[in-house]
Nucleic acid binder design. Structure first.
Lengths: 355, 355
DNA sequence: AAGATGTATGCAACCGATCCCATTACCGTG
DNA sequence: CACGGTAATGGGATCGGTTGCATACATCTT
C-alpha cells in the first residue's frame, strides 16, 4: 500500500541499494543520481519505514525515559528537556512511568530492551543497576539522573542537594537568623537526607546545634507541609526563618503562613527548594534554591548521545558521577530577623463575620 | 549476539514457526510443545525482538502522544493517564512536544507515521487534521482531546468548558453575588472563549449583564493572573466574588489576594478552574471546577484502543464527538457576599518595619 | 599501454519474527 | 480398507530497508 524504497528506486531508474544510499547520504553517489532519487521520493511522497530500517541497521532512534511519575516538578522538567534535545537530534522518547515500584521498573526495562531502544535515561531510581548494566552490555546507552546506582556501569548525573541546602541555610544565618525552622522530607528519601545534612552542616559551621524542636520531617506532600508548619510555629513561635526543603511541602507551607497572617519577609524569612514557576509570581517573590533541573536534563541527554554515537559502549568500569550545582536565587522573601513577636495565631473559624 | 527465536526453536527441537506460535499463543499447538518452547525460552533468557515482530506483523504497539507542552496540568494529567492505560494494554507511548507550533506538529506527525505507530492521541490542537486523516487512512488509530478538528475523521474527546464555567458562575450567583469578577484567558484560546461564554450565559440567565469592568482577560500566565487581579480590584473594589478561569492565572490571583490581606471566603469568594492538587491544601481549601482531565485521558485511550483492535479503521465520516462533564467541587472558598468594604489596598513596600 | 586507484552502481544476503501453504499423522466412518 | 477431516508442525516467502561484495567504467601512474 504505502510507497516503499523499491517504488522510489524504480521511479528513479536505479536499484534499491542506490536509492537507499542516496537518501541516507552514506556511501558514494553521484550528484545527479542523488537528485533523481530525491525527486522521485518527493514526487511519490515516500516515507521511510523506520521499523525496517531499525531491524537491519540496529538503530531504532528510540530512547526510554524511565521515571517515577510525571507530577514531580523536577521530573517533568527533566522529561521536557530530554524530549526536546532528543527530538532535535532525531531521537524519539518512550515515556515510562513506574510509580517507584521496583517490579514495574524491571518490567519496563525489559520492555525497553525488547523495543531495542538505543538508550535509556533513568530518573530518580538507584535500583536495578543489573538490568541497566545488561542493557549496556548489549550496546544500549544509559544514564542515571537525580539518583545514581552504586557500582553500576552507567554514568550518573546528580543534583547538589546538600550544597544547595547548605547555601540556603547559610544565607539565612548571614542575615542574622539563629532560629531557622526546617520543613522537609523524610530521611528515607535521598534528597530529604542530603538536604537535611546541608542544613545541619551550615548550622554547625556557624557554631549552632540542630534544635529538634525546629525540625519537621515527613512525607513529600502539601498536607505534611501545612501540618508541619503549624506544629513548628506552635512549638517555637520564636522562629524567625524557615527553610522549606521540597516543593511538594511548599504547597502546604505557604498557605499556612498566609492563613496565620504572617508576612514575608517582615515577619518571617523563607527559602524554598526547587524553582517552581509560581514562586516567582508569589507576593513577594520567594527566594529559592534552583536545583538545576534543566541542566540535569541537558547534561544527561548529552552524555547519552555521546554513548550512542561512540560505537560499542564504555568500558566495564563503574560509571562516572557528574554533579550539577544548585543555585541560590535571591528574591524578596528574606530579610534580617524581626524584632517583635509573630502575629497571634489565627482566630477559630468564625462564620462569615469579620472584625 | 542476542538470543533469537531460532535459538529457542533449536533448543526446543521445533521449527521457528512452531516456536513463534507457541510463544504468541496463536494457532494450534500441543500442550507439550508449548511447554517445551516456553522452557527453552526461559532457559535461554529469550527476549522477543519487537522491531522484527512489528515489521512483519504491522503492529508496533507504539502510540504517539502529541501535546503542546508538559507543564500544563491538564495536559500532563492526560499524559499520565494515557501512559498508564497504554502500558497496561501492552502499548508504549512516544512523547511528542510541539510548543503549539504547527510546523513542529506536522513534522511530529510525519515522524510518527514513519515509526508506524498503531495510534495517535493529539491533545489540545485543532490543526493538521489532514495529516491525521492520512494516518487513519493508513490504518492508524487517532483521537483528539481537548480540542477537536473540524470535519476530520478522528473522534474527539472534549471538555465541558462552557458548562463548567456556567456552573461555577451560577453557584456564585446563588450565593447572592452580583458583582462577580472574571480573570481568565484570551478569546484566542478555545478554552478561554468557552469559559467566558459560560460565565456570560449564567449572568444572563440571572438577569444580569456582563460588566466589562469586572472582566480581565489575558495570556495564560501567573503574571497576568496577578496583574489582572490587581487591576480588577482597583477598578471595582465592590467586587464580591472572583472566577479564575484557568489554573495558570490562579498562581497569580491567589498571591495577589493574599498580599492585599483579602481573606477567603469572608472578604471574597473564589472559584478556580481545574482541580490542581495544591488548591486542596490551600487555606481555606478552594472550590474548583474539575474539568475531568483523568476521565478525558481514560476515554480517549479507550477510544483509541477500540480503533486499534478493530481491523481496518472507522468509516470515512467525520469523527464522533464525546463530551466529558465538568464537576463543581465545593470546598470552603465561597460564602455569601460580605457586607463591609474590602480591606484597604496594601501599604507601599515599607522597609522591614511593621506596625 | 598495462596496471593501479578510485568512483558509482547492482546483486543478493540479511536483520528476526510472522504467516500462508503444504505436509504428515492420526482419528473415525461408511 | 479407503477416504474425509482435523490437529500439529515444518518450509519458505515476506515485511522494507541496509550493507558487504562484486562489477563496470573512468582516471591516474610510471
Amino acid at each position: 500500500m504505502a510507497v516503499t524504497l523499491k517504488d522510489v528506486a524504480t521511479a528513479a531508474g536505479v536499484s534499491r541499494s542506490t536509492a537507499s544510499r542516496a537518501l541516507s547520504g552514506s556511501g558514494l553517489i553521484s550528484e545527479e543520481t542523488r537528485a533523481a532519487v530525491e525527486n522521485a521520493a518527493r514526487g511519490l511522497g515516500y516515507r521511510p519505514n523506520r521499523t525496517a530500517s531499525a531491524l537491519r541497521s540496529r538503530q531504532t532512534h528510540l530512547i526510554g525515559l524511565v521515571m517515577n511519575n510525571l507530577i514531580n516538578a523536577s521530573f517533568h522538567t527533566i522529561a521536557d528537556v530530554v524530549q526536546r534535545r532528543a527530538s532535535a537530534e532525531g531521537y524519539q522518547v518512550l515515556l515510562c512511568i513506574t510509580d517507584a515500584d521496583p517490579a514495574k521498573e524491571r518490567s519496563v526495562l525489559r520492555m525497553l530492551s525488547e523495543h531495542n531502544v538505543d538508550g535509556v535515561v533513568v530518573i530518580g531510581t538507584g535500583r536495578n543497576s543489573d538490568l541497566v548494566d545488561e542493557l549496556m552490555g548489549a550496546g544500549t546507552g544509559a544514564v542515571n539522573v537525580i539518583r545514581g546506582t552504586e557500582g553500576g556501569r552507567a554514568p550518573s548525573v546528580l543534583a547538589s542537594d546538600r550544597e544547595g541546602a547548605h547555601a540556603a541555610t547559610r544565607r539565612l544565618l548571614e542575615l542574622g537568623h539563629t532560629r531557622i525552622g526546617f520543613v522537609g522530607g523524610l530521611a528515607s528519601a535521598n534528597s530529604g537526607r542530603e538536604r537535611f545534612a546541608g542544613y545541619e552542616q551550615a548550622l554547625r559551621e556557624h557554631g549552632l546545634e540542630t534544635d529538634p524542636a525546629l525540625v519537621e520531617r515527613g512525607p513529600f506532600t502539601p498536607a505534611f507541609g501545612a501540618e508541619g508548619t503549624r506544629a513548628l510555629l506552635d512549638r517555637r513561635p520564636d522562629v524567625t526563618a524557615l527553610f522549606a526543603a521540597n516543593h511538594e511541602a511548599v504547597f502546604g507551607v505557604l498557605p499556612t503562613l498566609v492563613s496565620r497572617g504572617i508576612r514575608l519577609p517582615d515577619d518571617l524569612s523563607l527559602i524554598c527548594y526547587e524553582d517552581i514557576s509560581w514562586l516567582r509570581s508569589w507576593q513577594p517573590p520567594v527566594t529559592v534554591v534552583d536545583n538545576g533541573a534543566d541542566e540535569l536534563g541537558r547534561l544527561c541527554f548529552d552524555l547519552l548521545l555521546r554513548q550512542m554515537r561512540e560505537s560499542p559502549g564504555p568500558g566495564p568500569g563503574p560509571g562516572r558521577v557528574y554533579r550539577v550545582g544548585a543555585d541560590l536565587v535571591e528574591r524578596s522573601s528574606c530579610a534580617p530577623p524581626r524584632t517583635s513577636p509573630l502575629p497571634a495565631p489565627p482566630p477559630p473559624p468564625a462564620g462569615g463575620t469579620r472584625g
